[in-house]
Design a protein around this nucleic acid. Structure first.
Lengths: 343, 343
DNA sequence: ATGAAAGCGCTAACAC
DNA sequence: GTGTTAGCGCTTTCAT
């Protein structure tokens, strides 16, 4: 830790478009046309310019280009959560990876905005101020009306169905949360579980609403009681708290669907404290096939969603929308149940 | 999938700095000074400008700012791998998350470059052309001499010790790969394993070199044979292939250290094919506490490294370096052994 | 098909 | 402390 580094940088003047023009013996406009692959340039001119570019090692200055052309060549990925949640949730990392992946084959750059709800207005303003060509809004809370309005100014794609989409002109990419929740809960039923509870997500997020809905359907399909519901906010701590409340009801419970693997992992801790064993004493199924689901004891049967692919898809829809193409209002991605030992 | 979306955007002229100046009754320079929190501005002026900014909803234009000030307010995160590896490896997602996290509290924007080795020159050129203020280079292969040179032009931080750092002026953030590998291998020994093999990483990456070195030390500490070495490239497929080659040697093996959890997971598949059971027939330990390590059957004892924190640290070192501060040439992050059931 | 010229919105000397 | 004045490097009409 003792060695320090303060390099002296080499002086090296960047070649400009003007220098290229000079070397190629043409005007700046022509160089610009070649760089932007515009038609109506003679093959000779193209050759001369290309040669000059190679010779000089010219790379266009992004800022100048943006300023002159009024396109920013950048999109925002907005994550309306505080940094702690952002930090803890593997979901975000995967989505970012997907978005970055798609962008890497384009000229676009990613601007990541981790924006707690109370900063939503400021964020929206930034987005609206011509600093990005479009935005992806993740895990949208219903309270964030701002972002729905945003879609009136720039192309927006939501990750997950927006809760209050009145008059929205944005599209979204999502998975069929209700259907998946229903199916994974049905596993519990087919294993003979009859007293089902759920640790649901928040009701101001569509993932929370829809997964609860799916659980309700499965329970009612099986003709069982549907009143054992406690809510969390998708974090382990909230899952633990919800499980505790469930146990305090002092009614029989032999199966739980937790709406996120993080909550399931918190719930498992509480169960263990109470000497309850999974799957011996009760079954547990959940949503998300991440580190939490995989490393729990026991490993959890869960709904896997194609998170990286969701990121890729959102980016591709957004870019097409920016290009003025028609894009589907809703894109559904497939889920898959990963069976492990927890039912 | 049938509904399509083509919103008509509202027309809304963005307020410029000039408009703010007019409303506030001051010059553009003064507005600029207030925006950039420069000293030497009267409280009155600040108040007037602030009011005008609020009234107009002014947000500075990033490109104009960059162009005029010659700082780009953006850094690059370079991942010198092909997209397939980028896609598959949870490590990258976590690092990105860390970098993004740190950046979120600054004005800096992240530009992610997924650059296969054959595109290294092009990438370096882009980086050298004044489009970023600095760069983080991840998982550096020794062949990529380009990036070492890069450090002569702009501040660079490497993720992991660069293999051929001759004359490098860059600093790096890393974990003590050798020490961690040595310790986790020692677990095998203390469980009575006496015929140790390793599935090592590539020798053109320092993580590959150092982890192999650690295994060698543990083996020699225990006075055992150190010749059972096969290499992979950190992917599951390569781990499987390496395990296969190890078995083909037809010598006793009762303990394996795989230099990445992905390789371990591939190796496990091969072991299963051969009717070998972990930990009954042989012990397996590895590196990285990711989804692969956690979801393997059995779950693997492994070295956990603070991946998100590495990202955070690299970003913070880089930014400080950009600001002209002295930064440590090397930053070591702690590892920790996660004991599970595979030894 | 090509060139000339006028900015894009801001910062940074420099003078006051 | 504040205003004036040049640009930053590029794209984009508009002529030619």
């Amino acid at each position: 830790m003792s060695a320090e580094v303060t390099p002296s940088r080499e002086f090296s003047p960047q070649p400009t478009l003007e220098m290229v023009a000079e070397v190629a013996g043409v005007s700046r406009s022509t160089v610009s046309r070649v760089v932007n692959a515009s038609p109506n340039v003679t093959a000779e001119a193209i050759a001369a310019v290309t040669a000059a570019i190679d010779k000089l090692g010219y790379v266009p200055n992004r800022a100048a280009r943006i300023l002159a052309s009024r396109r920013t060549l950048s999109i925002a990925l907005v994550i309306p959560e505080n940094t702690a949640k952002f930090f803890a949730d593997p979901y975000f990392a995967k989505v970012i990876q997907g978005v970055a992946m798609h962008l890497s084959s384009t000229e676009y750059t990613l601007s990541l905005l981790i924006a707690p709800e109370n900063a939503a207005e400021k964020t929206r303003r930034y987005l609206q101020s011509g600093n990005v060509d479009g935005a992806i809004i993740l895990s949208h809370h219903s309270d964030d009306r701002s972002y729905v309005l945003l879609a009136k100014s720039i192309p927006v794609v939501f990750g997950g169905r927006p809760v209050s989409p009145e008059g929205t002109v944005a599209s979204y990419v999502d998975v069929d949360n209700a259907q998946a929740a229903r199916e994974v809960t049905a596993q519990l039923v087919s294993n003979g579980r009859r007293h089902l509870a759920t640790i649901a997500g928040p009701l101001n997020m569509s993932a929370g609403i829809d997964r609860l809905q799916g659980w309700r359907e499965a329970v009612s399909d099986a003709g069982l009681d549907g009143s054992l519901i406690e809510h969390g906010d998708f974090t382990p701590a909230s899952g633990a708290a919800a499980m505790r409340r469930l146990l305090e009801r002092r009614v029989p419970i032999d199966g739980v669907f937790a709406a996120s693997a993080q909550m399931a992992s918190g719930a498992l801790t509480v169960l263990r404290e109470h000497g309850l064993e999974v799957p011996r004493d009760l079954g547990m199924v959940t949503f998300d096939d991440d580190y939490f689901a995989a490393s729990s004891v026991p490993p959890l049967t869960t709904v896997a969603q194609p998170t990286v692919e969701v990121g890729i898809r959102m980016a591709s829809v957004l870019l097409r929308s920016i290009d003025g193409e028609q894009v589907p209002a809703v894109t559904m991605m497939p889920t898959r149940i990963v069976e492990r030992e927890s039912e």
